[in-house]
């Protein structure tokens, strides 16, 4: 199949880390896109920013620590991790509380990012 032009994708993460299995499936998608050298951003919005908190402990609920998986993303060619500034403020999270370096975007910056993407994957 031909790919006439390279697509820019934004994966939007909107859910808290342990409420469903979707967040883990979406991280797997980001890892696969990194491995396949796709042009994409991983954007955490709304309750999705809770996935980025340091000091998560999921041992008692028997699932993998979401923060640990996410902190390894840069090793797997997931280069652009973005965070919604409004969501950080809403949850009282500082940029220094995040498990990996992420670019914090204000609403005025999010709008062009989302409207100019070829594909949005809303998870």
């Amino acid at each position: 199949m031909s790919t006439p032009q390279r697509k820019r994708t934004v994966i939007v993460m909107r859910h808290s880390p342990y409420g469903s299995s979707l967040t883990r499936a979406t991280i797997d998608l980001a890892l696969a896109m990194g491995a396949f050298e796709q042009d994409f951003d991983l954007l955490f919005m709304g309750a999705g920013v809770l996935q980025l908190l340091t000091d998560q402990d999921s041992a008692e609920i028997g699932v993998r620590n979401a923060g640990k998986v996410i902190s390894s993303l840069p090793l797997y060619d997931v280069e652009s991790v973005l965070v919604d500034a409004d969501a950080l403020r809403r949850y009282g999270i500082a940029a220094s509380d995040l498990v990996l370096p992420a670019r914090v975007l204000e609403a005025v910056e999010l709008h062009p990012l989302l409207s100019e993407a070829d594909h949005l994957v809303s998870c």
């Binding site: 390279r6 697509k7 797997d28 594909h119």
Partner: peptide, 15 residues
């Protein structure tokens, strides 16, 4: 695997 999704998305006008 997820590569099948990435491959299909790369050639799609709409996702």
């Amino acid at each position: 695997g997820l590569g099948q999704l990435i491959d299909a998305a790369a050639s799609a006008d709409r996702f």
